[in-house]
Design a protein around this nucleic acid. Sequence first.
DNA 1: AACGTTCGGTTAATCGATTAAACACCAGAG
DNA 2: CTCTGGTGTTTAATCGATTAACCGAACGTT
Lengths: 344, 344
Amino acid sequence: MARARMADVASAAGVSTATVSMVLSGAASTRISPETQARVREAAERIGYAPNSVARSLRTQRTRTIGLISDTIATTPFAGRMLAGANDVAREHGYLVVLVDTDDDAERERQAIAALVGQQVDAMIYARMWHRVVPAPAGLPDSTVFLDCRPRDDSRPATVPDERDGGTAATLELIAAGHRRIAYVDAPEDNEVVASGLRHEGYLSALAGAGVTADPLLHVRGTTDASGGRAATEALLTLPADRRPTAIFCFNDRMAMGAYAAARRAGLEVPADLSVVGYDDQQLVAAELDPPLTTVALPHYEMGRWAMEVALGLRRAEAGVPLLMPCPIIRRDSVGPPPEPASA
Amino acid sequence: MARARMADVASAAGVSTATVSMVLSGAASTRISPETQARVREAAERIGYAPNSVARSLRTQRTRTIGLISDTIATTPFAGRMLAGANDVAREHGYLVVLVDTDDDAERERQAIAALVGQQVDAMIYARMWHRVVPAPAGLPDSTVFLDCRPRDDSRPATVPDERDGGTAATLELIAAGHRRIAYVDAPEDNEVVASGLRHEGYLSALAGAGVTADPLLHVRGTTDASGGRAATEALLTLPADRRPTAIFCFNDRMAMGAYAAARRAGLEVPADLSVVGYDDQQLVAAELDPPLTTVALPHYEMGRWAMEVALGLRRAEAGVPLLMPCPIIRRDSVGPPPEPASA
DNA sequence: AACGTTCGGTTAATCGATTAAACACCAGAG
DNA sequence: CTCTGGTGTTTAATCGATTAACCGAACGTT
């Protein structure tokens, strides 16, 4: 049998569709007598009526649907938490999210935007899986919110992680443990990777705040995977004893994995001989390392929530200055005091 | 200015909306003169017309939209690839996917199903993030496809990984390297985790096929994280030398990480002293271990594609017997010959 | 000249809701 | 006995497309 329509409820209850609509939408409860309301509700229940949102959307011009465009969902472990945040807020307010993964392809992105606009989504979220500055794509509605990226012209509301502050927090954690010779194992030089520079700034400012002069030798780079972290750490460990770092802050958790491996090869224990702090709090990795890794979490869930709240108009957000979402430090067991009592 | 409607195109081109519709949908190209067609297209282009899919959907009773219900997207690294597969197929055929994460909550699931049905999705995919047998939820349309799970009554098309074959492949890999004493570090006993038993069956059958008698001592269990794998492996390594395994097949990659740690603590090198094979080919983990881990990949992307193809009717699939998607072995560097020349 | 056929469109119904405006009915006021 | 005002409900327009049915003109045939 076909799905019940409002007209079916109407005839079952012996009223007009207008009455059914008013009763079920709860709007004009005052105008309709309680008896009629009860009759309508009972009839709707009985024949299993469920409104057709397509028809409703056509009439009301709102679909209670939010479009979420993202690059490469597949290959990042971060997408999930961002999606989860957005999805939770959407659900809490009766919205549905239409997801499109553009695989970082400009043509697909164009199509996706067109398709979502055609579907009349009420708002749009433009997400990137790693913090970037992007040229605002054409065709995005005014109601678009940027997530984990910011439009180059800052023309729309956006939220990104507060990487600078995260870099400071990580470094401070090591300083607090007594370290003075702290290395920063950075990502390769790449303007796209804004996180790299910001975390470095945070690192430098933490050192400065503690009265430690930054040693340029301790700022090294490697590819952003375990092998890069390992190579960079190995280089660091060949430094003469008095210049060698007692602690390492890595650009991300995978590089920290590599740092662990390098330490192991060099016969060093983490954290007894070398303290390590990562970044990202990567699912199923950071906590599983031996010892579990102290790291800085990327606030993907929170950013996802925020973006959806703005998209839904639950929260005012002016374009111009992106919201910097705090990156909390996650303390585990990879940080300890330096091997020798600090210079103090 | 409001979005252009078909009527706007019609008046701009001096024709009726029927003509516009026919021209733009490409359907009745034969009936309309080439000149008129050109005029209509030009007008549509000029005023930037894009069809309103809500209106179209109401009329055609199809939304070109697929609902995808899943549990806990957030906390698993697998979701991405499954989504990517589904999304790719959808995009290739001009469909959009509406995603709902139920967070494994029955009430949310109910709401999600109702919402998607109300949105008139053309079909639905019911996904789980780890292989399970589930009671088919009420309210799912007939067109629902099950992804990485199967309805208890096998009443709908479904696809799950071929875990048994994967277990065989992993074990065979070790046998081929010359191992005879091969342990299986299993997940805790739990009927929900069907993968556990199936991989075990595969393991046993590979051993039997090679004429090796399975030693019950070599079937141990641990929690499905690194610490569980580590504890189980440590237990294995305390076995007397002649009963000790020379190779370990782990239920998943995280447990394999733990096996690495245990080996290291025991002064053993992987793979020189101990070979290890994992399962899952977990993103950003398996390949990053030192040495990179040989493992069995879960075909999430392929399952996602398959499910969407079935949902879109591009592929016939009868309910009854779930499609077993092959789990390819990913060879890296954690498998070598046993430390002593094989018994041969 | 009368009568099909094509050709090239147009008319109008329809999908299933929402909602402004109209209406029927009754009570109380003037 | 008419008028005014509520009250409770219905009528009908509307959202923006699709599509079956129809229609007028031109052309060919006998």
